[in-house]
Amino acid sequence: MRVMVLMKATEDSEKGVPPTPEAIEAFAAMDRFTEELVEAGVFVAAAGLKPSAEAKRIAFDGASRTIIDGPFAEARELVAGFSIWEVKDMDEAVAWAKRCPNPMSGPSEIEIRPFYEAADLADFVTPEELATPRDGTRGKLGVA
């Protein structure tokens, strides 16, 4: 199963990361952990996100679209980075996440969210939707 591992922001991370020796060491520790994930075939993708000062929100209400510029309040509800892992189950994801170095300088949280998989969506996706669009009536080609 695929999971998204969300690194939650902190007041500090929202201020941006100055390249202090501690920050550089934390970066290196995260690199080593990522390397472990890669060697275990667990790592799929990851990225860090800039502070919400550089973010924008689009609020939807009926036909209206309102643009809200960052920064946003409630730092600890924001996402500072994410990682996508392929694991057997949530237990494995948790076991890996516990090994992750603290991504922040102070107390912080990581949240693991499983992806919806095809089986979960079976009730939402109609057979017609699965089958379209069709580009032609070519036969089975067997080409890689």
């Binding site: 057979p127 017609e128 699965l130 089958a131 379209t132 580009d135 032609g136 036969g139 089975k140 080609l141």
Partner: peptide
């Protein structure tokens, strides 16, 4: 790769 009723969907016709 698998369409309605488990039918194989060839590469050129896949969504």
């Amino acid at each position: 790769r698998i369409g309605p009723n488990g039918v194989f969907v060839p590469l050129t016709e896949q969504n």
